[in-house]
């Protein structure tokens, strides 16, 4: 940052060689209900960079962790949906601010995860931050754009308003671990839903970095819950879970048909994956409407 760059050197170099300071490494954990627990199973998966170098261990969430995340998301849903639309927007904008503050960190995570150049990573991180800003602006416009006043025949006031569907299980894209992730999570919560996100299996670390930004924004715990581990292990539990209202199959890969079929048991809404999504493109409402219900209210009018 500018301040640091122009600051004078700190204390003069010490006379003798001191032992080099040992870095404090980060433990990558799950993000559930606003806390950072390890998997209840005690398991982890090794995470390598795009080049194959070992980076860290990430928690390997179990089916039980997935169910706990559903409980956390359900508990958070009512209060989150009840926040005023503009307040939700303010909180999403705050997430963008938090990411901006950690820009360099996200760039490093992206370089490691995707093996892209630093310049490309810069673009990706900027786009991810801007995506939050984009959706921050949507929260209090969704109802105005999608809601309708319905001119029915009879002495009734009738209007339809979009409402969040509830708890959404999101299988984040496998190959775009930061921008893709933000692109699928932000619209879900902008609309007032809460999310359980299964991070990119191969590159989960940016998701945990995002969780850290979320935890330090004003986002209430449980609104976004992030699981790392094996998609094939966790996703079926989420797809079939009766308290999950919708399922985003973006990162489902070959599991998509099986998961959609499992979701049918409780009529869970399903957003199928796009063949080759361009995560840089302006998303519009396409990822918001699948997670909305339309509530129509008739009211008798009279003196």
């Amino acid at each position: 940052m500018a301040d640091t760059a122009t600051a004078p050197d700190p204390a003069p170099a010490s006379p003798g060689p001191e032992p080099r300071r040992l870095a404090v490494r980060k433990t990558y954990k799950l993000y559930v209900g606003g806390a950072f627990p390890r998997s209840e199973s005690g398991r982890s998966i090794p995470v390598n960079s795009a080049e194959g170098a070992h980076l860290a261990h990430a928690a390997r969430a179990s089916r039980k962790d997935a169910r706990d995340a559903v409980v956390a998301a359900r508990a958070a849903f009512g209060p989150w949906a009840a926040r005023t639309a503009q307040l939700r927007g303010q909180i999403l904008y705050r997430i963008a601010e938090m990411m901006e503050g950690r820009h360099a960190h996200f760039v490093q995570e992206t370089v490691d995860a995707q093996g892209v150049s630093e310049a490309t990573a810069q673009d990706i991180v900027s786009a991810a931050i801007d995506r939050w800003v984009y959706y921050a602006g949507w929260t209090d416009k969704i109802a105005q754009v999608l809601g309708t006043s319905n001119p029915v025949s009879g002495p009734f006031e009738n209007s339809s308003a979009p409402q969040p569907t509830g708890v959404v299980a999101v299988l984040a894209p496998q190959d775009s671990p930061l921008l893709g992730l933000v692109s699928v999570v932000a619209p879900v919560i902008a609309a007032g839903n809460t999310a359980i996100v299964v991070a990119s299996e191969r590159a989960p670390l940016p998701a945990i970095a995002l969780a850290e930004a979320l935890a330090t924004s004003d986002l209430p715990g449980g609104v976004v819950n992030i699981l790392t581990g094996r998609t094939a292990e966790i996703a079926p539990t989420l797809a079939a879970h009766a308290d999950v209202n919708a399922l985003d199959l973006s990162g489902a890969g070959d599991l998509a048909t099986e998961l959609e079929s499992a979701a049918a048991a409780t009529l869970t809404r399903v957003l199928r994956r796009e063949p080759s999504p361009d995560w840089h493109a302006l998303p519009g409402l396409a990822r918001i409407t699948p997670f909305l219900e339309t509530k129509t209210v008739w009211q008798a009018v009279g003196r």
């Binding site: 319905n150 029915v152 009879g154 009734f156 339309t294 129509t296 209210v297 008739w298 009211q299 008798a300």
Partner: peptide
């Protein structure tokens, strides 16, 4: 619920989403 009737019930109209 997708359709809520206040002080009426079972009303339908082509302009009203159901």
């Amino acid at each position: 619920a997708g359709v809520i009737w206040a002080n009426t019930f079972n009303k339908f109209d082509p302009a009203s989403p159901f």
